[in-house]
Design a protein around this nucleic acid. Sequence first.
DNA 1: GTGAAAATGCGGAAATATCGCAACAAATGG
DNA 2: CCATTTGTTGCGATATTTCCGCATTTTCAC
Lengths: 150, 150
Amino acid sequence: MAKLDQTNQKILRELCRDGRVSNLDLADRVGLSPSACLRRVQELERSGVIAGYRAVLDKAKLGVGFVAYVTVGLNRHTKDAQEAFERAIARAPEVTECHNITGAVEYLLRVEAADLGAYKSFHTDILGTLPQVNAITSYVVMGSPKDDRA
Amino acid sequence: MAKLDQTNQKILRELCRDGRVSNLDLADRVGLSPSACLRRVQELERSGVIAGYRAVLDKAKLGVGFVAYVTVGLNRHTKDAQEAFERAIARAPEVTECHNITGAVEYLLRVEAADLGAYKSFHTDILGTLPQVNAITSYVVMGSPKDDRA
DNA sequence: GTGAAAATGCGGAAATATCGCAACAAATGG
DNA sequence: CCATTTGTTGCGATATTTCCGCATTTTCAC
């Protein structure tokens, strides 16, 4: 595993802020020559510390006007039931996250939809029709004062 | 606002998969000449549909071995109390997301820590000491079968 | 059809990434 | 204390890519 000295931490911070910064600029900001900087970045990529790069899209401008977190409880706790549920979730484009959590219910989902109507369709026609699903509780997101993963 | 024809959708899909793909490769994949492709990307950036680019880090390799979602209820529902709470959250590096939600409690947080011990410290020393905080419930993430925002 | 507006492809100049190489620094062992 | 090894750095040359002007083609409304 690559060691995380102060320079590598700076590199990661800059790349999280702007994943498309040129190697020349990046080298400037972290105080290295371009070649030394490039080698560090390549090592961070090779070792998997940098898992990849992504464009961050403005969901609102793509028609997403409704976000909710949804807890889901299953009626059976078998491996089969969980796998079937997770397969169905993988197919649903509205679901951007699915976490297996501790507590009274098994799953926490993040669901993105165009509007309340679109969410209702998802709630009724997709989640509601899955035979493994027992309990559904929706928490509508009114705002996100902090979202470092956006 | 930029129109989202099929080509632009392809571009966005590719850039979400690999935000650092070269314009030459991207043009190939979406079936355009490099110059036409570059112009579309620049327009998507200018219009804000592409909000930016980020490196995706492997949190596990950075020492994050514990993730939890935490619901927080406040004891006062004044604007002041909310703002004070949100300021405190903004300062806490363990909190990667803070959502204002509908339901029995006001907030849903995503918290990342090195391990259970580090989380306990955060829970006790940070969250527990905020005067506005009334109820705290933790849901430990055991796995994330789907996480498009990772 | 016809004209206006937008999108496209081409080509070249400028900027950038990439890699070999030698110098340097920090640890290791005698 | 010195020699050796290992890892990192900066430099410079080359290959690649970005970026922009320009002419052509396509699209669309009338």
